[in-house]
Design a protein around this nucleic acid. Structure first.
Length: 410
RNA sequence: GGAGGGUUGGCAGAAUGGCAUUGCGAUGGUUUCGAAAACCAUUGGGAGUAAUCCUUUGCAGGUUCGAAUCCUGCACCCUCCGCCA
């Protein structure tokens, strides 16, 4: 959520920000409702002040004031009822250095690693995985339907190797290891800004009976961790590394990336999260990206770092940087990680603040960054490390966790 | 799933229809060579340059001139029973 005061004082900037993010908004309507709201509030507060001054003696006078307040209150509520849904739809403002435009305006910041040359036709992960019997989509369909998969044998071992390696790397930097709940209440989802539109809701799994959502990423379970709390300034940045299964409806993606495990309803992910000082959140963002790069460099897989354009970012984000790994099976870079700075957008709704040296309360900045999205990382490993005979070498850094150098046909 | 008890500031804990009492802790100050102790002040949130005003007893409603207190719904916590990896 944006700060109403900021909207009031910078309406053109907010309008411009919405335009950049390709979100429709009616700022003048919001300002009008805000003005009305403050008028009603002021009147009501004046009446209450009078009422508070009256003692036990003038019950008759108090009754009069009370009836007036009772008349105004529903009007205030009505205005607020109109205002807040509009406010919730406003996206976070993109930072100034974010390129403007849709996906095509994304900027490749840098590339790392050499694209591998094969002296044979490289296969894609599904072909490799089925031949080696480590990915089984067909049987998963019988069990659960489309967009599910069994991850088996060495692929399953690789998953836990990746999890451990990511945790180890982040913990060296002081991240707190966490396994969060994956079912969360509506309030938490709302606080993170992920169920404000119909499209948002269509993307979430929801249990009507229990009024609980399945998380689409650990971010949604870690952000609300400190809901309503106040950090000491010296506690920032507070960082966590979390493992969770992620659930996505993938509504509206029919026919897109249907092959294999690139886009599935359920996958596991290791996620980094920071509660940062507002003055240092840009630095923190870069720090998180540097850790992501460290992880991909350790896997020795070529990748590029992409600054997303304004129109390609999620609503809560002020700046998003993706890591795209080279996928020989598709002969292109594909998104494997994402790092976003949501500034105070989520913190305002979740009421997560810190106390400054002067004793003032300010909202923290919240950032999230993928360590490993396991499914897509498996794809990248399989496709980049494939051999002519269909076997797959295991990245050096993971060998110790698995006790093998390669995956061969059973 | 069943039965009962509970939720007041960072913590403890009073107030049972009329300005939310007090203690501990914390922070700042006085004192001190320095510290402890002692003493003074501050210590829920919001708006405002400020005086000041509003708000706050888990959340949302209701009754009332007035609700922490009475009523309704919800959430959460505890105890016991049942079930259970």
């Amino acid at each position: 959520m944006l700060d109403l005061k900021y909207i009031r004082e910078n309406p053109e900037k907010v309008e411009e920000g919405c335009k950049k993010k390709n979100v429709e908004c009616d700022i003048s309507k919001i300002l009008e409702l805000d003005k009305k709201k403050r008028e009603f509030l002021q009147k009501i507060e004046e009446l209450r002040a009078e009422q508070n001054k009256l003692g036990k003696g003038s019950i008759e006078e108090a009754t009069k004031l009370k009836t007036e307040v009772k008349k105004l209150e529903p009007q205030l509520q009505e205005v607020e009822g109109e205002l807040y849904p509009l406010l919730a739809l406003l996206p976070n403002m993109p930072q100034d250095d974010v390129p403007v435009g849709d996906e095509s305006a994304n900027v490749v910041l840098r590339q790392h690693g050499k694209i591998p040359k094969f002296d044979f036709e490289p296969k894609d992960h599904l072909e490799l995985g089925e031949a080696l019997n480590i990915i089984d989509v067909k049987r998963a369909v019988k069990l659960s339907g489309s967009r599910f998969a069994y991850i088996k044998r060495e692929a399953a071992l690789l998953e836990f190797a990746l999890v451990q390696f990511a945790f180890k790397t982040a913990m060296k930097e002081g991240f707190i290891p966490v396994v969060p709940p994956v079912l969360v209440k509506k309030e938490a989802m709302q606080g993170m800004g992920y169920i404000d539109t119909k499209e948002d809701l269509a993307e979430r799994y929801y249990f009507e009976k229990d009024k609980l959502f399945l998380v689409g990423t650990a971010e949604q379970a870690i952000g609300p961790l400190h809901q309503g709390e106040v950090f000491e300034e010296k506690e920032l940045a507070s960082r966590a590394i979390a493992f969770s299964t992620c659930f996505r409806e993938e509504a509206g993606s029919y026919g897109k990336d249907t092959r294999g495990i690139l886009r599935v309803h359920q996958f596991d992910k290791v996620e980094m999260f920071s509660f940062a000082h507002p003055e240092k959140s840009k630095e923190e963002h870069q720090f998180l990206v540097s850790l992501q790069e460290k992880l991909w460099q350790a896997l020795e897989i070529p990748y590029q770092v992409v600054q997303l354009a304004t129109g390609d970012m999620a609503r809560p984000s002020a700046s998003t940087i993706d890591i795209e790994a080279w996928m020989p099976g598709q002969n292109k870079y594909r998104e494997v990680s994402s790092a976003s700075n949501t500034t105070d957008f989520q913190a305002r709704r979740l009421n997560i603040r810190f106390k400054t040296k002067e004793g003032k309360l300010e909202y923290v900045h919240m950032l999230n960054a993928t360590a490993f999205a396991i499914g897509r990382t498996l794809i990248a490993i399989m496709e980049n490390y494939q051999q002519k005979d269909g076997s797959i070498k295991i990245p050096k850094v993971l060998k110790g966790y698995i006790g093998k150098k390669e995956i061969q046909k059973q």
